[in-house]
């Protein structure tokens, strides 16, 4: 088989890497946003009564 097929192989691995990488990134960012929101909520709950 000729060299031209390497383009397809590369594209397949690239697509896979992009999809898996994007998914991982999305899950990680989601985790960061959630823990941050939970932390903010917890800290505001403690001082919540004092805030005017």
């Amino acid at each position: 088989m000729t060299d031209s097929h390497w383009g397809f192989i590369l594209a397949a691995y690239l697509v896979t890497a992009l999809v898996i990488g994007g998914m991982t990134l999305k899950i990680l960012l989601d985790y960061r946003a959630l823990t941050r929101a939970l932390g903010k909520l917890a800290s505001s709950a403690v001082v919540g009564d004092d805030v005017p």
């Binding site: 031209s4 097929h5 397809f8 192989i9 697509v15 898996i20």
Partner: peptide
């Protein structure tokens, strides 16, 4: 991924 790689495999 299965569909995309299948398609990229199918073309050649």
């Amino acid at each position: 991924i299965c569909l995309a790689t299948g398609s990229l495999w199918g073309k050649p």
